[in-house]
């Protein structure tokens, strides 16, 4: 008896299984399983990492620039470019110092922002669900970027526990225009692997939702 009739449904089931299993991948704002990012900063607003005066990277200030673009904190949207003439590298006290300095130079009030040094993911998930774009530490790509090596980096968190697979997703400023999806365990390892997680969250609201109405 020929079993060839079973091949198409088996292939279908296999494909579906692979789709469900493969949570970690690089793609766009929609995961192949249909999950969408919660914070959808348009791809042409993504910023690429650069180097400071001493050659050290500006990932912290690039991530902050994109968070500011989302929150419409105009004083900090070009933070990366402002920092090019300063030494690179970032840490919590330096962020505090340079936000204060930049806003002081522009004569505007400092935007409200929260810094977290903790391995706890709850506040990050809550922040994304509430419409914020957190900047988070990131030490290893689960999809094989950076040849799988450990890195010291800051990226933006665009999804947290999204969709049926409760996926997390990041926007890496070394790969603008793309979104990297992963599981919660993978994100936890990436976030905390530098000896502890660090996040910066601008607290101003994001853009208004697209308008719609009921036709008359």
């Amino acid at each position: 008896m020929s079993l060839s009739w079973m091949l198409p449904p088996l292939c279908g089931l296999l494909s579906l299984g692979l789709l469900v299993v493969q949570a970690a991948l690089v793609g766009g704002p929609t995961h192949p399983d249909g999950t969408e990012v919660q914070i959808d900063l348009p791809a042409d607003r993504h910023q690429r990492n650069a180097a400071g005066r001493d050659g050290a990277g500006l990932c912290v200030f690039t991530a902050l620039g994109m968070a500011a673009d989302w929150a419409h904190e105009l004083a900090l949207v070009d933070f990366r470019d402002y920092m090019r003439c300063h030494p690179g590298g970032g840490y919590p006290e330096k962020v505090t110092e340079f936000i204060r300095r930049r806003c002081g130079e522009l004569g505007v009030a400092e935007p409200p922002y929260l810094q977290i040094q903790s391995n706890d993911l709850e506040l990050l998930a809550q922040a994304v669900a509430a419409g914020h774009l957190p900047c988070v530490t990131y030490c290893q790509s689960p999809t094989g970027r950076y040849q799988g090596r450990r890195i010291a980096h800051m990226v933006n968190l665009v999804a947290a526990r999204a969709g049926g697979q409760r996926l997390w997703a990041i926007l890496d400023n070394n790969y603008p225009g793309t979104i990297e999806w992963m599981t919660e365990d993978q994100f936890r390892r990436a976030y905390t692997g530098l000896g502890g997680g660090w996040a910066v969250i601008l607290l101003a609201p994001g853009p208004p939702p697209p308008p719609w109405n009921t036709p008359r």
Binding site: A56, F61, R150, H153, N174, W198
Partner: peptide, 9 residues
Amino acid sequence: EPENFGIQS
């Protein structure tokens, strides 16, 4: 140590 893109870990 990790390749560094701008974090003073």
